[in-house]
């Protein structure tokens, strides 16, 4: 089983911090214009949010595993709900590599696998180095082409 790049934790922490800051700003606005409350409240909320975010990121990193099995891409992840998903290669419609601004700054990249399904229709493997992402994309593409079948849609 392969694990993600450790730097992905920074990305998740950054996302959580960003969310916490947004909540902090909203609370400050509420404080200024609607009802006023002690300054401790927004600071506490933001701090708790940030701590939860860090814990979440660390646990999620520990939980995340993926593997190329002989018939499918297999992933395990989740903190609250732990999900194990198998995406058979025959079902892969197309494969993307993507990276956002923070990911790019951290030198990370994601692979997104699309199926024709209704739920879990796009499966994302985050936290890969750009090289690993490109290699995974190519491997998946080859495996998908090799096992091509009529999808019935």
């Amino acid at each position: 089983m392969e694990v993600l790049h450790p730097r992905i934790r920074l990305l998740w922490i950054a996302q959580a911090a960003l969310a916490a800051v947004v909540v902090g700003v909203v609370l400050a606005a509420v404080d200024a214009w609607i009802v006023s409350f002690p300054t401790v409240v927004p600071i506490g909320v933001v701090a708790i949010g940030a701590i939860l975010g860090i814990v979440y990121a660390v646990v999620l990193y520990k939980q995340w595993r993926f593997e190329l099995q002989d018939d499918a891409l297999y992933l395990e992840r989740g903190v609250i709900t732990f999900v194990e998903t198998a995406v058979p290669f025959v079902r892969v419609q197309h494969v993307d590599t993507q990276f956002g601004p923070i990911e790019r700054a951290l030198g990370l990249s994601s692979v997104v696998v699309y199926t024709a399904g209704s739920r879990n229709a796009d499966v994302r493997v985050p936290g890969l180095t750009p090289d690993r992402a490109r290699k995974l994309q190519n491997t998946l593409r080859e495996l998908a082409v090799d096992s091509e079948a009529d999808d019935g849609v």
């Binding site: 609250i80 998903t85 058979p88 879990n120």
Partner: peptide
């Protein structure tokens, strides 16, 4: 033959 993906889900309570 029609399967797309198969997942096993476990929430905290289920675990």
């Amino acid at each position: 033959y029609r399967l797309q993906t198969v997942s096993t889900r476990r929430s905290i309570f289920q675990r």
